[in-house]
Amino acid sequence: MSADGSILTPVVDGPSATQADAGFVLKAWGWAWPKALAIVLVLGIWQVVVWSGWRPTYVLPSPGETLQTLWGMLGTERFWSAIQTTMIRAVIGFALALVIGTAVGVLVARIRPLRLAVGSLITGLQTMPSIAWFPLAILLFGLDEQAILFVVVLGAAPSIANGVISGIDHVPPSFVRLGTVLGAKTVSLYRDIVLPAAMPAYVAGLTQGWAFAWRSLMAGELLVIIAERPSLGANLEFARQFSKAPLLLATMLVILIIGMLVDGLFSSYARSMRRKRGLEVA
């Protein structure tokens, strides 16, 4: 390179370690305080309602009592076995929905006649409340695991398929032209350009799919209770039948927290992807 090249040579300077630490603490604080505020707000309102005496405390226990029950519950084997059953169902159901939804999405996005035939049906399925599937599912599969999985998949797969379809539809035409110019054939065009370009919409579809899967699963566990197999949904039903209000509310809290944690994982993945692509300011 010629001498004047030095003028244009980049000076790359990494942030120092202390700066990075301070940045991390700041970031963690920025992430944590809105959530802490939300929790304080909810607990506060709840406590006020309890104090108002609107319902007797054996029906509506205070946050303190509920949290105490929750703490106690964490020490029981029944609780952990319930979590295990529920999470296994969630993972299997979501994985099935992922495979089916992705395959259907790619096919529908690629094949025109299929698109005309099935495109609006997928959106229709998405608006269908999953609980409405259960009577049919129970007829088809009996009061068994398959009935629950069936409904979880039907709940989640349409969102995932829609994510794939909208992702592929919104790939900028200039990227496809670039692929053509670079000599990409159908397979390489999809692998190297179309699918990566569709990723943000796909992950949005997965996030929504998870929310639907989790809702369907809880509906399923309330309706399809299998003997000797505790699950979070079954625990809810059990707590209601035996009028154990603190247990009921504690279980509800657990359901809420799990749903939010998984959603948080998806969102933070989506955010980091968008940041890498310069779609979102850090």
């Binding site: 200039s174 990227f175 032209r177 670039l178 692929g179 110019v181 670079l182 000599g183 990409a184 390489s188 190297d192 350009i193 990566p196 370009a197 990723m199 992807m273 890498k276 692509r277 310069g278 779609l279």
Partner: peptide, 29 residues
């Protein structure tokens, strides 16, 4: 003969680094 094209807009793929963008052309040939 085969044609290479440099578009009016840079049209770089945002999920790849600069090096990967160049390497993609090498890969596809």
């Amino acid at each position: 003969a085969r044609v290479a094209f440099m578009f009016q807009e840079a049209t770089l793929l945002p999920w790849m680094t600069a090096r990967q963008n160049v390497a993609l052309a090498l890969k596809l040939r």
